[in-house]
Design a binder for these strands. Structure first.
Lengths: 359, 359
DNA sequence: CTGTTAGCGCCTTCAA
DNA sequence: TTGAAGGCGCTAACAG
């Protein structure tokens, strides 16, 4: 059916070996004239190399797999776009898959894609377990984590300065005079959530403020979770004046619950209501300016994080290939450098145009 | 390095052919006892089939490529999740790539992925041109469009009832008593935009209303475009009372511009301002309840569309394989059935809880 | 039901 | 600088 290297060889009057050499950039030397002829013939015939055959031979697919807990998530996809940007520049293809927020799925995907010989992986871990990741790394497959760390492991990673961001967010609320501040949402299996929580605690401690025990319960990372926790807080006799949301989804759920609480009848409800809290939340997006209770957000540099992770994985892939070139180096020469964690700064944004002013 | 089928064969005391037959589900008959032994040995050794070798032989990768204009887009990713859901169920892998809103990129990606032998493609076209798509289809590669059609082509497609949705949206505004209604955003290269615009026109005609010429200019599909168009409308001496937004991004830009216009100082601005329009827009999301001017949205069933497209592509892949089984059938037996376009209904949602009430 | 055999298309020593 | 030849791991005839 389709054209092979042999067709090109015949057309150009050379051997298949020469065609291969002429077509692969970094290959052995070929006479300039020959190379040109091969290229023009290949072009003329519309030859396209068979990727499977090449992979079978070279054991490389020029592919990096990215596994995200979900696809319909602005932040994760912004990370993915950053990664894609870096990979494209190097002729690599991005393979995007979802773990559906399940470690079991994550593991399956990971192995499926490893079988397909992805050259490397960038993973946003769905949970706390890291055995499957270790197992990949044990096979010598390059891996870098992004956005979240996995406790007890030592992988290279690119994450935000979650602790610092949450601390800054909380400090901003304290500086505004609030003392009764709750932390909403979170999941102890997710490093970003733990770090943000501890940043919140640190800021409070600095000011000698102690939060109510009820206000420091984790409650999940989704919209529903924020909705529920907000509902619980509304039921308290003396609710917090300000809130720190662990992420945008939780933040959104909280705003939704507040909207309902205030009766949803004309905007004046926000002044009329007995309870008007202020929210500071992680993640900035196109939508945060419209969230009524939102006063501060911590903006992560998702694109930058993605690019950084892309660079890291390409570097590891390159090093691996080099290592395997040298037959002398046994498998135990396997890169065992300590996992290097890059923390990217976050920017605190003050939303004064909307929600910041009704309090 | 890694285990091959031969290692398993040796361990199980059978030939490689038998191992292959035992491991592939739909293969030739194998004695139950043999199959069990092969499976247990494969398991014990931790054998994993080499995908490249298998693809090289079978010319199939069990992969469907999805090309979207961008990744960080809730609607596109919701389509992708619908597709993934269907593919997973059939043991196929989703390969997600982005065209970065460029036809040139779309074309490159398409060919790259075709070389990697994706078994089929689901494309959200970035623009109006369809030569590259035709070229793929000419090679007999299964393809279905989603969300947008390409003029002058005849591919299978799954789209929303854009015309009907926009018409319903506009009718709702008319029923509320508005007569001066503008259409904002759009791109003549994108079928969904054209269809929505014509739905808007139809509703107006039914009521004998004629829009200002300025109010029917397309102006792009992004946030910035909505922002700019809204700015232009604000500058008019007699601006429209109501607006139909071509999509959520444009809608968002419009809301942003309105926010600024009203001065961003406390919520009372919405009553104080001289100009308080109502917006009806395509796409429902978690955020639309918070958009102050938003009264109606047309909710597309993205998940359902994705699933439908997934089913369609798998069906085409299946048929293609069958067709190629029969050697008698020449290439011209190639499926040439008229492209079947499925139109999914949209739901009109009334946002009364927030923006709908201040007008 | 199972083994033998012959490639799939490409890259890569080894010689020339 | 180029050609010849072998094999990557797997599947699909064809015999047995």
């Amino acid at each position: 059916m389709s054209l092979t290297i042999r067709d090109v060889a015949r057309a150009a009057g050379v051997s298949t070996a020469t065609v291969s050499r002429a077509l692969v950039p970094g290959a052995s030397p070929v006479a300039e004239e020959t190379r040109a002829r091969v290229h023009s013939e290949a072009e003329r015939l519309g030859y396209r190399a068979n990727h499977a055959a090449r992979s079978l031979k070279t054991r490389s697919t020029k592919t990096v797999a990215v596994i995200a807990p979900e696809l319909a998530n602005d932040f994760f996809m912004a990370l993915a776009e950053g990664i894609a940007c870096e990979l494209d520049a190097q002729g690599y293809t991005l393979l995007l898959a979802t773990s559906e927020n399940s470690q079991e799925e994550e593991k399956k995907r990971l192995f499926t894609l490893a079988d397909r010989m992805a050259d490397g992986f960038i993973v946003i871990p769905a949970g706390a377990g890291g055995e499957h990741l270790e197992s990949l790394a044990g096979r010598g497959i390059p891996l870098v984590l992004i956005d979240r760390l996995v406790e007890g492991t030592n992988f290279d990673a690119v994450v935000s300065d979650n602790e610092g961001g949450a601390c800054a967010l909380t400090r901003a609320l304290l500086a505004d005079g609030f003392r009764r501040i709750a932390f909403v949402g979170g999941d102890s299996a997710i490093s970003a959530a733990r770090e943000r929580f501890s940043g919140y605690l640190r800021a409070l401690e600095e000011e000698g403020v102690r939060p109510e025990p009820d206000w420091t319960l984790f409650g999940g990372m989704g919209v529903d979770d924020g909705y529920r926790r907000m509902g619980a807080l509304l039921a308290e006799k003396n609710p917090p004046e300000a809130l720190v949301a662990v992420n945008l989804l939780v933040h959104l759920g909280m705003e939704r619950r507040l909207l309902e609480y205030h009766g949803g009848g004309g905007e004046a409800r926000f002044r009329r209501g007995p309870y008007v809290p202020v929210i500071a939340g992680f993640d900035e997006s196109r939508y945060t300016p419209f969230l009524p209770a939102c006063r501060y957000t911590a903006a992560q540099d998702a694109l930058g994080m993605g690019k950084e992770a892309g660079r890291r994985i390409l570097e590891k892939i390159r090093r691996r290939r080099e290592r395997e070139k040298v037959p002398g180096s046994a498998h135990n020469t396997e890169e065992r450098a300590a996992g290097c964690v890059i923390r990217m700064p976050v920017a605190i944004i003050h939303h004064q145009s909307f929600g910041g002013n009704y309090g």
